[in-house]
């Protein structure tokens, strides 16, 4: 067993090496930047969970517009559990993810049967009906003002998770864990089946794949991780309001994902990192940012429709093909 692990490490030294460098950078990063920027990094980590889980759903071919409300579902669940019922953060974290997943599972029944145009609108309506519930029902959701006094996650008493840097590490660990699980899923047979469905749903059906089941599965799993992202967001902002999970956030999510591309696992991450960096750079022009993003997205779709990742692909199709041919999974 140990030998196998050692062999694996040696075999995959190159990407393990890169991963370790990346990890080291991410660990020292908060000490290299200003406090405000640490806050931005925390939100970026949360957005990374959001885009990667979104991509998970898109691998079956459907672009869900209910993803941001699903994040809200997790956020509201943890607000109610921790602030309302006094459940500890560490129990509330998976439970709130689960709450989003259960909600997604229920909604996926009509959604998984629709495609294309109908899926956009139906998924939006599904998400928006959640948001309307939060707005409308003052108990327990607090209406427009939302819920406040969400407690700081408890940890060993020596660590104060209300400060940005410790919270950054919390978010980093949880993000890494989520990405690891989703990466694993992406590379498993399940992930392959998702992609097969998006390539050709009819053929998949004729080969005995229960397309509706797999679509519901992807939607549910993706929403679980969106819910986890929502938990991290709620405990950082100490409050949740319905407006956070409105359509504007969804539009940004779409822009990040399209800009990065959805073919590969790293594409959406690239998109959200680059565009967050860009919007921080453009801070002085913040009123113009949506217009700049709008222009970017239209130009992206016209001139390089595969997104940022596609740029890389243009130069390395041969390399990639060789890896496939060798029966190896492409490494990223």
């Amino acid at each position: 067993m140990i030998r196998r692990i050692l062999v694996y490490i040696v075999d995959n030294f190159r990407w393990i090496g890169w991963l370790m460098i990346l990890g080291a950078v991410l660990i020292v990063l908060p000490y290299m930047v200003r406090t405000y920027q640490v806050e931005v990094l925390i939100l970026l980590l949360i957005d990374i969970i959001l885009v990667v889980s979104f991509r998970l759903i898109t691998t079956t071919g459907g672009w869900s517009l209910a993803h941001v409300p699903m994040m809200g579902c997790g956020a509201y669940a943890t607000a109610l559990l921790t602030a309302g019922l006094g459940v500890p953060f560490w129990i509330s974290l998976p439970l709130s993810g689960l709450a989003a997943a259960v909600m997604a599972f229920i909604l996926s029944y009509p959604l998984a049967r629709t495609t294309g145009f109908a899926f956009f609108v139906a998924s939006f309506a599904a998400g928006d009906s959640l948001r309307l519930c939060w707005t409308r029902f003052k108990t327990p959701f607090g209406g427009h003002k939302g819920l406040t006094n969400i407690p700081v996650p408890e940890f060993f008493s020596s660590v104060d998770l209300s400060a940005p840097i410790p919270y950054y590490y919390l978010a980093l660990v949880i993000t890494a864990l989520c990405l690891l699980i989703m990466f694993r899923l992406d590379r498993s047979r399940i992930g392959h089946t998702f992609k097969a469905i998006s390539m050709n749903a009819d053929l998949s059906r004729s080969l005995g794949i229960n397309v509706t089941f797999y679509k519901m599965l992807a939607f549910t799993i993706g929403s679980f991780f969106a819910g986890v992202a929502g938990v991290l967001l709620a405990h950082r902002l100490w409050a949740v309001v319905p407006a956070q999970f409105g359509f504007v956030t969804t539009l940004y999510l779409l822009v990040w994902v399209v800009f990065g591309g959805t073919r590969t696992f790293h594409g959406p991450i690239l998109g959200v990192v680059v565009l967050t960096f860009l919007s921080e750079l453009l801070k002085p022009l913040f009123e113009w940012v949506p217009m700049i993003f709008g222009t970017i997205i239209i130009l992206t779709l016209i001139f390089f429709p595969e997104g940022l990742e596609g740029l890389g692909h243009r130069f390395t199709p041969w390399l990639d093909r060789q890896r496939f041919a060798a029966g190896d999974e492409p490494r990223h």
Binding site: M199, N200, L203, R205, S206, L207, G208, A325
Partner: peptide, 28 residues
């Protein structure tokens, strides 16, 4: 029965226009 259940009972089909997972290799 839905299509996948029919396939599970041992009744397979092909499609008129070549219907494949075009972005996968033949083996995949």
């Amino acid at each position: 029965l839905p299509p996948h259940a029919v396939a599970r009972r041992g009744l397979a089909r092909t499609f008129q226009l070549t219907t494949l997972f075009k972005e996968m290799t033949a083996l995949e």
